[in-house]
Computed example of a mutant assay.
Amino acid sequence: MLITFKSQSFSDVTMYQEHAQRILDVLNKNHTRGVITAAEAAHAVQLLEQEITLSKLHPEVDAGHANHSHPHHLPEEDESTEMADKNHIGFAQRAFPLLEMLRAARDGGDSIVWGV
């Protein structure tokens, strides 16, 4: 399932629900539908930046949250760990578009909505 985040300050951001879930959990928001108001955006940026920093400090935990780079890719038995690490898309990379949207919403005084 896909979630599309919308704001007047930024282009739409669409993510797989499983990837957006961690971000929304950090922000204490429902994944089905919700809003981050302009007043909440500054705090949301801080929370998400903290989670990104933690994911970079503890990459083994980050890998446990999202250990696949493509939903239909199953690694071959002989595929090297180096190749798997190269294909891993971490939390910081997945969160970046929404973080940029949050920054734009904060600076522009706009809200972000999804599922409506």
Rank of each mutant, 00 (worst) to 15 (best):
L24K: 05
N30K: 07
G34H: 03
S11K: 06
D107M: 01
V13Q: 06
S9T: 03
L102Q: 06
L27Y: 01
A84S: 08
K6P: 01
H58Y: 08
E82L: 11
H73W: 09
M101H: 04
S69C: 15
Q50A: 15
L27R: 03
G115F: 03
V116G: 15
F5N: 09
V45M: 07
H72P: 02
Q8W: 00
V13G: 09
I89F: 09
N28Y: 02
P97S: 11
L102I: 07
T32P: 02
L57A: 13
L74M: 13
S11N: 12
R106V: 05
M1C: 07
R22S: 15
M101G: 10
D85W: 00
D110L: 01
T32H: 10
G34Y: 03
I112C: 11
L24P: 08
L2G: 09
A38M: 02
A20E: 11
V113M: 06
H68C: 15
F96S: 14
Q50Y: 01
F96K: 13
V116E: 15
S111M: 00
G108D: 12
E40W: 00
I52L: 09
I89H: 11
T4I: 04
A38G: 11
F10H: 14
M101I: 05
I89N: 13
L24N: 08
T14V: 09
L102E: 10
V116D: 15
